[in-house]
Computed example of a mutant assay.
Amino acid sequence: MIPAARPAVPGAGAVLTGTAYASCHHGEILQGVFLDDRGHRCAGLVTLPMSGPGSRAEFVRRPGSPPEELSVFPADRTKARRAAALALAECAPLCGEAPCGGQVRLTGGIPVGLGMGSSTSDVIAVVRAVADSFSLRLPSETIARLAVRAELACDPLMLDGRPVLFAQREGRVLEVLGPALPPVVVVGCVLGGGAPVDTLSLPVPVHDDEDVRAYERLRALLRRAVVTGDVALLGAVATASARRGQQRLGHAEFDALTDIAEAVGAVGVQIAHSGAVAGLLFDPADARLASRVAGCVRALESTGVPTTRTFTTLPHHHGVSAWTSTSPTRSAGRT
């Protein structure tokens, strides 16, 4: 059994300031509706991990102040404020204290609205920072529960990086697919000119039995890709999931992405199902990797699709660092 919480430093005194960090992701490899272990339909997703941008939170706790005196900077991070209140209500009783007020300060460079998990990153960083102010470390299951309450649905950024099929509206793991995804090199880009996607304005998908069977087949293929380290199969699953997501998102650039992927020898395409970020996936063991990536960047830019960053899910591989710019210009709107 994992304890509800445990001291970060056994025997340490109360800590009034807590700090924490949470990473983001690069959209989904797979997202749809799946069956849980009881045979019930459940929305689920598998995210593409990415190092680099993230959210950092600092929480200054003020014991004795009313819980309503809780402020967040930037002030528009309302989900983060809810997360702080929930975390205070969770952590204070564990230390024999009453919930109080305080101040949260968030920093980080995750673009908002592109489907990179910016709100979940904020929420997790805040929950961890509040816990840290009590000298506590909350288990991932508790953080997931609080994150769902704070934002109604969340990404699995609180987990240990293993590829999981995650029920984003329930905050629970449907399946651990294996120890690690097959490593890929990703040429990132943004669709729709990089304009944020208002997912709440999109039509709610209705899935029939055939849809569920199709997603379960993709789940089985992704499981096989993880177990065998098959990069090409991973790319095929991502492309199939992105294609099905087109029924809801309708990105005008989708056909161009898949055409470029085929022309330059990418193993597949992945698109955030709740945003505008996308990526062309390459096998890092490909002997022609450098020329393929360069050709991909040229083709995307010539098509009018802005490139963002080329990164790999391995720290260093074949001369591609974990996070490098592929854009000729830098701007705050780029990922």
Rank of each mutant, 00 (worst) to 15 (best):
M1L: 13
I2N: 13
P3R: 03
R6Y: 10
P7Y: 05
A8W: 00
A14I: 06
L16V: 05
G27I: 10
L30H: 04
V33L: 12
D36W: 12
H40P: 00
P49T: 07
M50H: 06
M50S: 09
S55L: 07
R61K: 10
R61L: 09
P63D: 07
G64M: 03
P66W: 02
E69F: 04
D76H: 13
L88H: 03
C100Q: 04
R105W: 08
G108R: 10
L114Q: 15
L114R: 12
S121P: 01
V127H: 08
V127I: 15
V127P: 07
R128F: 07
A129F: 10
A129N: 08
F134G: 06
S140F: 02
S140K: 11
T142M: 13
T142K: 14
R145W: 01
V148A: 09
R149K: 15
E151K: 09
L152W: 01
C154H: 00
L157F: 09
D160C: 02
L165Q: 06
A167R: 08
L174D: 12
E175V: 10
L177G: 11
P179Y: 02
P179T: 12
P183K: 06
V184C: 11
V186A: 12
G188W: 05
G188P: 05
V190L: 11
V197K: 05
S201Y: 00
L202W: 01
H207W: 14
E210G: 02
D211F: 06
R219C: 10
T228K: 10
G229A: 08
G229N: 07
D230L: 01
V231Q: 02
L233M: 14
A238R: 10
A238F: 03
S241W: 08
A242P: 06
R248Q: 12
H251R: 00
I260S: 04
E262I: 00
A263R: 15
V269C: 09
V269S: 05
L280W: 02
F282R: 02
D286V: 01
A294N: 08
V297Q: 02
E301Q: 15
V305T: 11
T310D: 01
H316E: 15
S321G: 14
W323D: 15
A332P: 10
